[in-house]
């Protein structure tokens, strides 16, 4: 009931919140564009050429692929997670707590739900922007198959929305900015390592594999990998379904918890 009401309170004005964040981003666009341009280059050099030359090829879902081709979509999946999660934790917290930007917005026709949704939308956009730039770079290295590679774009939106919402949930409950270390170490960092990003999860022991399948990033990297390789493993559609459900739930929880934090 309250969740439904909260969703209904989101209006088109939420785009004005998104636009404010975009405007700030654009005033410093040169520094903002650089990391997603350079990051994949470093990854490709270090992991692909360095470690990859030690490993050579590996077998993924019964098919032999080069380590570089295997790893490239992992880099994308990680970026989808990092950009939105960090935006809606540290950056949103600064706007909410130190700058009181949300308070200023709520003194206008915007409702608290518009503000929260706009922030999540902006976090999603950060993931989208970063992945599109990185996709371009990886395409330049010849690591993306098309047309399936284009599916990375909607996947970045879905995954971005998910990790933006999860970030917002952390912001809603964190007592201060230093406490973000906690979800990062128990949640984000393990996902970064163990979600089939840099090695296939099949080689993990069974208990770890089960855990890995629960982690949402596993499904993001599975779908992104399918897109860049040009073929999806069996059951990919379940990954899509799982992601969609978790994203919807995370968004609602983020909305309600943030509302609880902001409305006193």
């Amino acid at each position: 009931m309250t969740a439904l009401q909260a969703v209904r309170n989101i209006s088109r004005l939420t785009l004005r919140v998104w636009r404010r964040d975009l405007d700030v981003y654009l005033t410093t666009w040169k520094t903002n564009f650089l990391p997603p341009l350079l990051e994949p280059v470093f990854y490709v050099l270090a992991f692909g050429l360095g470690i990859g030359s030690l490993i050579g090829d590996l077998v993924y879902q019964g098919v032999t692929v080069s380590y570089l081709r295997f790893m490239a979509p992992g880099v994308l999946a990680v970026a989808i997670m990092f950009w939105s999660f960090f935006e809606n934790t540290y950056a949103s917290f600064v706007r909410m707590y130190y700058q009181r930007t949300f308070d200023a917005m709520m003194a206008t026709p915007l409702l608290v739900e518009d503000v929260i949704a706009g922030e999540i939308l902006w976090g999603t956009t950060k993931s989208l922007l970063a992945s599109v730039i990185m996709l371009g770079v990886l395409t330049g290295f010849g690591l993306v198959a098309y047309p399936t590679g284009l599916w990375v774009v909607p996947l970045a939106v879905l995954g971005g929305l998910l990790f933006a919402s999860l970030g917002m949930i952390c912001t809603a409950v964190t007592p201060n900015i230093d406490t973000f270390n906690f979800p990062i170490f128990v949640f984000v960092f393990p996902m970064f390592m163990f979600s089939g990003t840099f090695f296939p999860i099949d080689i993990l022991p069974e208990w770890a594999r089960i855990l890995a399948w629960i982690l949402p990033l596993t499904h993001v990297s599975l779908l992104v990998r399918g897109s860049t390789l040009g073929w999806y493993p069996d059951g990919a559609v379940w990954s899509l379904l799982y992601l969609t459900l978790v994203t919807a739930a995370a968004f609602l929880v983020a909305l309600l918890l943030m509302k609880r934090r902001l409305v006193k």
């Binding site: 636009r19 700030v24 009181r100 200023a104 206008t108």
Partner: peptide, 22 residues
């Protein structure tokens, strides 16, 4: 407590805020 937007200049603060009022 003042909650001006430190990410924008003085004039831009007004222009961005006006958008919230459409």
């Amino acid at each position: 407590e003042d909650n001006l937007d430190p990410d924008f200049s003085v004039e831009r603060n007004l222009l961005v805020y006006a958008r919230y009022f459409s």
